[in-house]
Amino acid sequence: MSDASLAAPPVKASPFHNLEVLWVRHWTDQLFSFALKRPEDFRFRSGEFVMIGLPGEDGGKPVLRAYSIASPFWAEELEFFSIKVADGPLTSRLQKIQPGDSVLMGKKPTGTLVLDAVTGGERLWLIGTGTGLAPWLSVARDPETYSRFKQVIVCHTVRNVADLAYRDFFTHEIHDDPLIGDEAKAQLTYYPTVTRERFETPGRITDRIKSGDVFADLQLPIGFSPNSDRVMLCGAMAMIKETGELLETYGLKEGSNAEPGDYVLERAFVG
């Protein structure tokens, strides 16, 4: 028998990184954020998503879900924004992670909520509901966003005021960012809406688009223009579909990585 026949078969490379949890922040009893140590060879475009998970219990297959990366492409850590589901296969366990624990992350980021998928314009709308805010945390910290668009509007719709995670970040903290702080102060507008409590801008973002309130509040011409407005959508399926239909009535066309357009949505989340 030759030495070659005795050689062990090559070990198949894992499709996942096993990453250390750096910090965890619980916003409410339903929302939390966490950060993972970034592998040196991991590259992604701001706005992309990746698979996040935990090993299966009792040796079963890993439990994985798609998560938008909330960090910009240049960040040294990878941040994520998640809901908590008491009986969820993943989040029922993921919400209990602590610094020093390990989390699985896929090696291949992908997605459509990237600057490459929209054509040039004057105004970029980043419209999200709930944890659909996550990709906007990434895109809003990318220098290219401010070089390509004169105005960036982050719209975040939630049920309760306490759900406006990152409100302080978008109204104050981002202005101190060493890379894009000055640009954000001059070009970024944060527009939150709340559906189940009293708030200065109440209701669903789709209703405020239909009524024209969002444009009046921001002192903009009523409606979206294919000549000047570009839109990204992430969050609840109903919001994405309704807003997409509204944008089409204004003449905006959906784009993709292969063929950039006037607006984009993440079909991996919509189904």
Rank of each mutant, 00 (worst) to 15 (best):
P143W: 00
E76C: 08
T195H: 02
V231N: 09
A117N: 05
G255M: 07
S33F: 00
D168L: 01
P99Y: 02
L31W: 07
D177P: 10
A86L: 10
K12Q: 14
E242S: 10
T193R: 02
N257R: 13
S228P: 03
P15H: 08
K37T: 13
S82F: 04
G47V: 01
R167H: 15
S225F: 04
M1G: 10
R159C: 05
Q30C: 06
P55D: 15
G121D: 03
L90G: 00
A4M: 12
G111T: 09
K210L: 12
G235F: 07
A140G: 04
F224S: 04
D262V: 11
L94M: 03
V214I: 09
E200Y: 11
M239F: 05
K12L: 12
E173G: 13
T243K: 01
A8T: 13
V152K: 01
E79D: 12
I97T: 07
E242A: 12
T119A: 15
D58I: 01
V139E: 06
E76A: 09
R123D: 01
F49G: 01
D3K: 12
L90R: 00
S225T: 05
Y250M: 05
H175T: 13
K150W: 09
I97M: 06
F169S: 01
G56A: 03
D176Q: 12
T195V: 03
E259W: 01
A238V: 15
F44L: 14
G60H: 10
I127Q: 08
S2H: 07
T91K: 00
G203I: 08
K61M: 09
